[in-house]
């Protein structure tokens, strides 16, 4: 595997996100030791119901990201609806109301590109199911800095457009099923 130990995981998902994330996040062990930054496309007007849902299902801590909050290990941060979530240059999460990217706010590209900037090769980026191409440029940014690029197998995905676009942008990305993603992440975050 890559030389740098992974320090953070970024996950992006759109159509079919809830089922995909339910297969992954609750399966992570309580001892999981990396921060997980999650962008899910949700309609802007709806209050984000994902956080309470995943809080009730996960063994790791789950919360909605707050502006300028230091990123802690073993915590999953969800982007609030209608805000972009970024990793700041001091390692805090930051929010922004900049205009939508790929018609999306939060946008997966915005998270992944800023996280790639901060974590470099110590970042693992995961693109899950979705019906658009957000995240493709972001995953490429992760791969370009030497991070680990992972894409849900489009054949098994609820919506294949997003993983397919990510693979087109980053052909070297590893293709995995939900179970393989769980296994891979667990091995990153609990080995030490």
């Amino acid at each position: 595997m890559s030389g740098t130990p992974i320090q953070a995981v970024a996950i992006g998902a759109s159509a079919g996100a809830v089922q995909a994330l339910l297969a992954i996040l609750p399966a992570l062990p309580a001892s999981f030791s990396l921060p997980v930054l999650v962008v899910v496309h949700v309609p802007p007007d709806r209050s984000n119901m994902l956080v309470p849902l995943f809080q009730s299902k996960c063994r790791i801590k789950v919360k909605e990201a707050e502006d300028k909050e230091p990123v802690e290990n073993g915590v999953a941060y969800f982007a609030p609806s209608d805000y972009h979530m970024l990793v700041e240059t001091d390692g805090c999460v930051a929010l922004s109301t900049d205009e939508p990217v790929n018609y999306s706010r939060p946008s997966i590209d915005v998270l992944f590109e800023s996280a790639a900037d901060y974590y470099g090769s110590a970042l693992a980026g995961v693109i899950l199911t979705g019906a658009n191409h957000d995240g493709a440029a972001g995953l490429k940014a992760v791969a370009d800095v030497g991070g680990v690029a992972i894409v849900e197998n489009p054949d098994g995905a609820y919506a294949s457009a997003m993983p397919t676009a990510a693979l087109e942008a980053t052909p070297s990305a590893r293709i995995m099923s939900h179970d393989q993603i769980v296994f891979f992440l667990s091995s990153l975050g609990t080995a030490r």
């Binding site: 300028k68 970024l86 990793v87 700041e88 240059t89 930051a94 922004s96 900049d98 915005v110 590109e113 800023s114 900037d117 901060y118």
Partner: peptide, 9 residues
């Protein structure tokens, strides 16, 4: 200003 956003802009 928060640098990550400024950089994007």
């Amino acid at each position: 200003y928060a640098r990550a956003s400024i950089k994007r802009r």
